[in-house]
Design a binder for these strands. Sequence first.
DNA 1: CTGGGGACGGGGCCC
DNA 2: AGGGCCCCGTCCCCA
Length: 270
Amino acid sequence: MPRSFLVKKHFNSAKKPNYSELDSPTVFISPYLYKSFSVPAIPQPEVLSSVAYNPITVWTTSSLPLSPLPSDLSPVSGYPSSLGRVSPPPLSDTSSKAPSGSASPVSDGDERLHAKLSETEPHAAEAEKFQCALCNKSYSTYSGLLKHKQLHCDAQARKSFSCKYCEKEYVSLGALKMHIRTHTLPCVCKICGKAFSRPWLLQGHIRTHTGEKPFSCPHCSRAFADRSNLRAHLQTHSDVKKYQCKNCSKTFSRMSLLHKHEESGCCVAH
DNA sequence: CTGGGGACGGGGCCC
DNA sequence: AGGGCCCCGTCCCCA
């Protein structure tokens, strides 16, 4: 019996593409995935070792290296703040995975460079003999032009792989191609028509049809179709949960639960 | 309300 | 270079 999540509501259509309205043709995934439907498309994984999932580190929201956007980090203007899913604003260089809790050193450096460049920009009245072929900016000295090219235009030219579906830019074609898959969703489920960006996402989805749960908990009889869900489940067997409130020291199995706890007022009450 | 499960997204690493 | 996989994470739903 299909659960309601299979008809997941996407409140933000801008974030979640409408699979039926993609302007690029979708390609059905290779038939090998369906060669034997009852047999998993991926090799049966070994039962995960409990050691690998025995967390030692206790994180707090203040120490999390990849904590989601805290409340003091509002989205960059121009991007909808009503996104149901909290996601960082597109960075100029998305190939670098900077912690969302801190400014990207790349973009920060770029801003500083921009400021520096505007300081050194020649006055219009001055003779501007040296012109940048890329942006047509003129400089009175060759060193000024050289500096501009090295610090600004050449750097910009290197980020020349732009997504035609959104504003993201990538430094490599491979990174861009992978990103574009999130728009084109070339992996389509033959059973329900749902589309995915990557084959293994489709494989995981197919398990929702087959009921296959290859990831077993070594501590109890539960099994999961998704390794991440097993990882989260293993937290429930741990006395000390991974995520700790920095005020009351209560620990939680998921960061989202810690966030809920903090938002509910624990930290205010203490 | 809280905790947990299900489904899925995306970057990074490895081969 | 590109695909497969891992890991971390989010969102939604339900008990």
